[in-house]
């Protein structure tokens, strides 16, 4: 048990956590955009699967991992357009359209994998880039500065998303559409267009989240590669209170505990493995329940907007 507190193990836990948090950051921040504009997208996992497959497939055939990431973004955009069409234009019940999108993405990515690839291959994905000087810092260097590009990108996304949401007119529009679409509409904001934009941006990021798995973290594709990761990503948006910094905190908390439980098992600490696996889920609920800072959700979340509604 004392081993778990040694410097080497702590560095190991934090390094793992940075990697584990990567797909959650992409997907959760993307989902935060959609939800801030008032659209609940439960289909993140399906979009991630489609993104993961496209990135994998294009990389496998062109050998160019950048083209793979681009393909994931494009496919994410298409899935986002489909979700917007159904949830915004057709004003569908969002909780259910998301589940439909999930089933569709799960099915189609598996089908394409089966028909176009057939068996599991590993690919060479984004290489690990050691940042000069910074990676030499003891402990800190190993934890933060020896990762592949998508990992850095995910963390840089946090301040970028914060800036976009809090400091730009676009961000203001997204928020106003999510809080009070009727008022925004009367001020001349095109509610549907803003929602389309936000959902699609979120879907592009979900596509990248999938790509970060298949071309940086595990470097392969398999049916149902995400194994429900997208649903955790949606949950983390609530943990983070729709703010990029809060989402960062949630993703890190979940990932640190997950890395911690893996180390508990590796070091042979006497704990049932199933209980260890439960820990990140338990702690995420517990921390949120006992933390005092609570943010009200966007008032129009999950409510389709109809012009001229009273």
């Amino acid at each position: 048990m004392t081993e778990i507190l040694s410097a080497a193990v702590i560095v190991g836990i934090l390094t793992s956590a940075i990697r584990l948090a990567t797909p959650y950051l992409f997907a959760s921040i993307g989902e935060a955009f959609a939800q801030t504009s008032g659209v609940l997208n439960l289909g993140v996992d399906g979009i991630m699967l489609m993104g993961a497959f496209s990135a994998f497939y294009v990389t496998l055939h062109t050998g160019n991992v950048w083209l793979g990431a681009l393909a994931a973004m494009l496919v994410g955009l298409l899935m986002g357009l489909l979700m917007s069409l159904i949830s915004v234009t057709f004003k569908a019940e969002q909780g259910i359209s998301g589940i439909g999108l999930y089933m569709f993405g799960l099915g189609l990515s598996s089908l394409l994998f089966k028909v176009l690839v057939g068996t599991v291959y590993t690919i060479s994905g984004f290489p690990v880039i050691k940042i000069p000087f910074l990676s030499q810092i003891p402990y800190i260097g190993q934890i933060f500065f020896q990762h592949s590009l998508p990992v850095y990108a995910a963390f840089l996304l946090v301040p970028l998303a914060w800036w976009l949401l809090d400091k730009t007119t676009w961000g203001l529009k997204i928020k106003s559409v999510g809080q009070n679409p009727a008022a925004a509409d009367s001020l001349g904001v095109n509610v549907d267009r803003v929602r389309y934009f936000s959902v699609c941006l979120g879907a592009v990021l979900a596509g990248l989240a999938g790509a970060s798995l298949s071309t940086a973290l595990v470097n392969l594709f398999q049916e149902n590669l995400t194994a429900g990761l997208g649903f955790i990503a949606v949950a983390l948006v609530y943990f983070g209170g729709w703010r990029p910094l809060g989402i960062l905190a949630g993703a890190l908390l979940f990932s640190v505990v997950n890395a911690f439980q893996l180390w508990l098992q590796v070091l042979g600490v006497n704990i049932q493995s199933d209980v260890a696996v439960m820990l990140p889920y338990l702690l995420t609920i517990a921390v949120l329940a006992f933390s005092m800072n609570r943010v009200r959700q966007p008032a129009a979340l999950n409510k389709p907007f109809e012009r001229g509604e009273n």
Partner: peptide, 20 residues
């Protein structure tokens, strides 16, 4: 030393277990 991920399909966690 043994790790169990509690899932037959969670590739991401399995990968991280191996890295650990």
């Amino acid at each position: 030393s043994k790790t169990w991920t509690g899932s037959f399909s969670d590739v991401a966690l399995m990968t991280e277990a191996a890295k650990t």
